[in-house]
Each structure stands twice: as structure tokens, then as C-alpha cells.
Amino acid sequence: MTAETLLKVEGVETFYGNIRALAGVDVEVKKGEIVSLIGANGAGKSTLMMTICGSPQARVGTVTFDGQDITRMPTHEIARLRIAQSPEGRRIFPRMTVYENLQMGASLDNQKFFNEDVEKMFALFPRLKERQFQRGGTLSGGEQQMLAIARALMARPKLLMLDEPSLGLAPLVSKQIFAAIKLLNETQGLTVFLVEQNAFAALKLSHRAYVLVNGSITMSGSGAELLANPEVRAAYLEGGAH
């Protein structure tokens, strides 16, 4: 692929106090790609996503987005460069209605495209339309996940980062979510960076993927390559070591 690089993570080390959670990570995401990051619990996947968003900030290394160094930028300014995130644990606003949650997502453009975009979200996730006046906190887990993704999309992102979108979902619902991601990528060229425990689904969906072990990238390649790789199969696909 010869597309332009959108996100580049180079030699990033992130610490929680004295504990080094990321030990020199290099990751690259090109425009129009779906890139996934797989790894065991505690490998540092969420940490990498949060480091890209600037909280916590990388102690060593650089994060570049669209040619701009964002390593030391505050989180809200990074978000304004159109990096949207559905963070671990979804973090929707529980006391606000679905509709208001979506409005919050459109804060960046001050609701300019809200009416247009909200219809797109309702078309993508019809469940949200049914539940638009319900409070976020009373949605089911799957509906909350849909809302978290939709809210992130309301910001018209250049890069969408999803942390474990299939967590706790029934197989059918997680299939719907992955189908939605694929659709957005194919029809709108949306670039997606995906963290997943469900390695099989993630690798099948992704153009490229990275494997993170104890804070370092140990393997990378196309989704199909990693799916075929015996080590990956043993560790992440066949209910093996982890």
C-alpha cells in the first residue's frame, strides 16, 4: 500500500509512575486502513491508545498525526485534530439521553452537521434511533457500545480508535459492530485503529495488524499473514497460552 501515513508512533515509552507500560513501540497507520492491535491482558494495548490521545503522555518517543507532532499536546487539542476515540469501558454519559450523548460527540463543529450526521448514525445503528430518548446508563452493554462508536463518529474523525468494541457482546452483536466498521471503512474511507481481544474477528477485518507483548511490538503484518502465523494462532486464536 502506498497511501499516506496518518498516524506514526515511534519509539514510544509510557510510564505509570516507575512502571514502564510501553517499552519502545513503533506503529504506523496509513490513510484508509483498518489496523488492529492484539495482545494479552495487561500487554499495554489500552495504554498505547491513551498515549496517542495524550493521557498519559509518552515519556520517550514521538507520536505524529497527519504530519504534526502531537506527543506533548493536551488531550482535548488532539481530539480537535479529529482523532476520535471510543475508550476502554465505553465512557458514555449515563445520565444523558442517547440523543444528548450524540450531541456531545458533535461538540467540535458546534453541532453544525449534527442533523445530517445523526441520521447517518441512526441508519448505521437503528437500535439507537429506537432508544434515542433513553438515558445512556440504562442501555444494554451492546447498545452502549454502539452509542460509544456513534458518538465518536459524530466528530467526523480522520482516525477512529476503538478499544475492545466487542467486549462483553453477544457474538451476533459484535458481528454487527465489525460489519459497521467495515462498511464505514469501505464506503467513506474511514481510517480505523482497533484494539481487540477477539483476535480472529479483528485480524479478518484488518488490512494490517500488530501484536503487543509486555509493552513491545513482537510481530506485525497483514491480517491474513498473522491469521496464518502459527505463533499467533497458538497464543491468541486457539484459546492457548493467554
Binding site: S55, T75, H76, R91, F93, L108, A155
Partner: peptide, 12 residues
Amino acid sequence: EDEIACRSLGIN
């Protein structure tokens, strides 16, 4: 409701 979510939505 959620400060981290706010920041990731670009709210200062």
C-alpha cells in the same frame, strides 16, 4: 458524568 470522555471529545 465523565471527565476523560469529555477530553476525548475535544472539550477543554
